[in-house]
Nucleic acid binder design. Structure first.
Lengths: 234, 234
DNA sequence: ACCTGAACACCGTTCAAGT
DNA sequence: ACCTGAACACCGTTCAAGT
C-alpha cells in the first residue's frame, strides 16, 4: 500500500497524538508530489484494485491531493500509463549480451513473464499504449544484441525475437483474460457438464483448462521455440 | 456502414420525396430493434472508429434510437462486447475434426488470425471479457478434437492448443499494440536515429520493426511450432 | 412491449483563482 | 510554483413516465 502522510492531516488525528507528533512533525513530513510518486501510487493502486478502477480522482485521493494537482507533474492519464509500463520494464533484469544465448534468453523471458504475472494490468496497458519507453527499448536492445551475437542474421534475429515476444505476450494474455468476468466459474462448470455433448473435447480437457498450472505450460512451449530457433541457427 | 432507416424519419426528408415514399412506406420500413441488429451495429462501429469510441449513446444514435432503448434488448455494454466476440468467432471456419492435423491446424489458425486482423478490437475485448461464448467454445472444441484425433494425449493436446493459441494471440497482440499511439512515427524514427548509440540493435533492426510484413512473420513462427509439436508426437 | 427524458454517480481535462 | 473549486463535455445505467 501507498504510504500517504499528507492525507493524515486531512483526517481525524491518530489514536495516540504524542507518538504522532514525535514521529512526524508536520512541516517536513509533507513530501512533495512528483512524477515518480504518482507512478508509484498508480502501480500500487492498479495491482490492488485493477487498472479499470484507476481514476485521476481516486489516485489523487490516494496521494492526499485533489485530482487536478496531478496535472502539474504528469501530462495526462495516458502519461501515467506510459510511466507504469516503463516502471515494469525497468524491473526486468537485462540479459547479458554475450552469454550463451539459449540459457540467457530463457532466463530473460521467464523473468519478464514474472513481472507480467505480478502486474496483471501490464499486458492490457501495453496493448493500448505500445511499448516505446526508454526501459522497454533498452530491454529490447539487449535481447536483440544477444540474439545477434549468437549468430542470427538481422532478419532471423527479428523473427526470433518477435516469436519469443509473441509467446510471452500470448501466455500473459491468456493468464490475464483468464476466466469469464461476470459469471462465476461455478456456473460455467455446471454449463460445461450440461453441454458435454455439444463440446465433448472442451469438457474432457476442462480440468487442464481450469487449474491451468501456468508456469509449466509456458516453459513447455518456450523449449519448443528455443529448440526450433536453435535448429534453424545451425 | 450500418443502414439505418429508422433514423431517416428524424432527419430532414430526402431530396426526392416521391422516390422516398415509393421505396419505403413508413409503416413497414421501421424494422424493429433487436439484439442481432445492435451487435451488428456495434461491430461495424468498432471496425470504423475503434472500440474505445463505442458508447451506448453513439450506438443508439447509429440505430436511430435513444441509448436507453438498447437496454430492452441487451443486458448492458459488456453484453454487447460478448456478442461482438461471439460474432467474430462464429465467422472463423471450423476445422475438419479428422483431417491431417498439421495442414488443418495451420489453416484454422491462419483463418482465425485473418479475423483478428480484420477486427483489431477483438484481441482487446477478448482480454477484458474472456472467451466463453458459444462460438468460441465450439471453435475450441473442434480444434481440441482435431489434435486429440491426431494422437496427442489429453495433456499434450492441451499443451499444443495453448501454445498455438498463445502464438496467435501474441501476434495479434503485437499487431494491435503496433506503434505508439500519441506520438507520431516520424518522431520515433528521428529519436531512434538520435539514440542509435543507446539502442544500437533496435536502431539497426528498425526497418524490420517498422514495415513488419506481418503475415510472413506469423507463418514463420507457426511452422516452427507445428514442427516442434509434430516431433514430440512421434 | 417498447421507447423516452430526466436523473444519478461517475469520468478526464481545462481554467481562472487562490497561496 | 504548486494546489484548488467550479465547470465542461462526456460516460453507463436506473427508473418513472409515456405510447
Amino acid at each position: 500500500m501507498v504510504i500517504c502522510i499528507h492525507r493524515k492531516f486531512r483526517n481525524p488525528p491518530l489514536p495516540n497524538p504524542l507518538t504522532y507528533d514525535a514521529v512526524m512533525p508536520p512541516t517536513e513530513t509533507r513530501l512533495p508530489l512528483n512524477r515518480e510518486r504518482i507512478i508509484d501510487a498508480a502501480v500500487t493502486y492498479a495491482d490492488d484494485n485493477g487498472v479499470e478502477e484507476l481514476s485521476m480522482r481516486k489516485l489523487g485521493a490516494e496521494l492526499g491531493v485533489e485530482a487536478m494537482s496531478l496535472y502539474n507533474h504528469v501530462k495526462n492519464k495516458d502519461d501515467i500509463f506510459d510511466g507504469m509500463i516503463d516502471r515494469v520494464f525497468a524491473s526486468v533484469p537485462l540479459p547479458a549480451i554475450d552469454a550463451e544465448w539459449t540459457t540467457a534468453i530463457r532466463e530473460t523471458v521467464l523473468k519478464a513473464m514474472d513481472q507480467f504475472t505480478a502486474h496483471p494490468w501490464m499486458v492490457n496497458l501495453l496493448m493500448q499504449r505500445g511499448n516505446y519507453g526508454n526501459s522497454s527499448l533498452l530491454f529490447m536492445d539487449r535481447a536483440l544484441g544477444l540474439l545477434r551475437n549468437a549468430g542470427f542474421s538481422d532478419e532471423d534475429t527479428h523473427h526470433a525475437w518477435q516469436m519469443l515476444a509473441s509467446h510471452t505476450m500470448g501466455y500473459a494474455f491468456q493468464m490475464v483474460s483468464g476466466g469469464p468476468k461476470d459469471k462465476d466459474w461455478e456456473g460455467i462448470e455446471g454449463q460445461l457438464a450440461d453441454l458435454a455433448e455439444d463440446y465433448p473435447n472442451v469438457a474432457r480437457l476442462a480440468p487442464y483448462l481450469g487449474d491451468c498450472e501456468f508456469a509449466g505450460e509456458f516453459a513447455f512451449g518456450l523449449e519448443i521455440i528455443i529448440d526450433g530457433l536453435n535448429a534453424r541457427l545451425h
